[in-house]
């Protein structure tokens, strides 16, 4: 089945203006595989910070966690979690919509996702301002701000990607074929990752 892609009798006289089409040796799309591998390395970056978290919490300190005098706004963060999780559904909806050539649904889904993401980031920043301790306050402050901050940076990047997707959606790009809506699918995958990562960060930092 692999040799089937060779076009028989492709003459040499024909002028070539570009490279030949690469043979597709795996079923997965290149861009999708690319983003998945990128996410793998992102997971490892978080892994480094979780390793630091483990050492600070379990090895270097045996006092209460969070340290006495620090009160985390678990409630607000919980609501924020709900906001972010729901944005995973809207981005999924957008993708499903464009698969059925529903451009209205696509735009609706993408816009909703963007707004939810922005709300999350806004609440997060607000939380930073009012939280009552700073990154300089002990190792707890460092790990709290860097884990949530690293995640926040990823939300920001995700929003950037979604912005591009939105622009293109409103310009009428994208279509039901997979190659025509990679611009939605790829940011979508990234967004799901940002979401799942948040659940882990939330559990590690606020809950357990």
């Amino acid at each position: 089945m692999e040799s089937a892609s060779i076009a028989a009798g492709h003459g040499h006289a024909e002028e070539h203006h570009g490279p030949p089409e690469a043979h597709q040796s795996a079923r997965i799309d290149r861009t999708i595989l690319g983003i998945l591998l990128f996410i793998l390395s992102e997971v490892m970056l978080f892994g480094a910070f979780f390793a630091a978290y483990f050492f600070i919490r379990a090895v270097a300190n045996d006092g209460p966690w969070p340290p006495v005098g620090i009160e985390l706004p678990v409630m607000i963060a919980g609501i924020n979690t709900a906001i972010l999780v729901s944005s995973s559904f809207t981005v999924h909806y957008a993708l499903e919509a464009i698969k059925h050539n529903n451009h209205r649904g696509l735009k609706l889904g993408l816009t909703m996702t963007w707004l939810l993401g922005a709300t999350f980031l806004f609440i997060q920043i607000n939380e930073y301002v009012h939280i009552g301790f700073t990154p300089r306050d002990g190792a707890f402050g460092s790990i709290f701000f860097s884990l949530t901050g690293l995640h926040g940076a990823h939300v920001f990047v995700g929003l950037l990607l979604l912005t591009f997707a939105n622009i293109r959606a409103y310009r009428g790009h994208f279509g039901p074929d997979q190659k025509d809506h990679l611009g939605v699918e790829v940011p979508g995958i990234y967004w799901h990752f940002v979401d799942i990562m948040w659940i882990i960060v939330f559990l590690a930092v606020y809950i357990i």
Partner: peptide, 22 residues
Amino acid sequence: ATPFVAGAQFMVLFDRILGMNF
């Protein structure tokens, strides 16, 4: 693996210029 060295150097940088305490 490379993200780990990036992470380690971020932490050192944070300790150095943001006054964090890793």
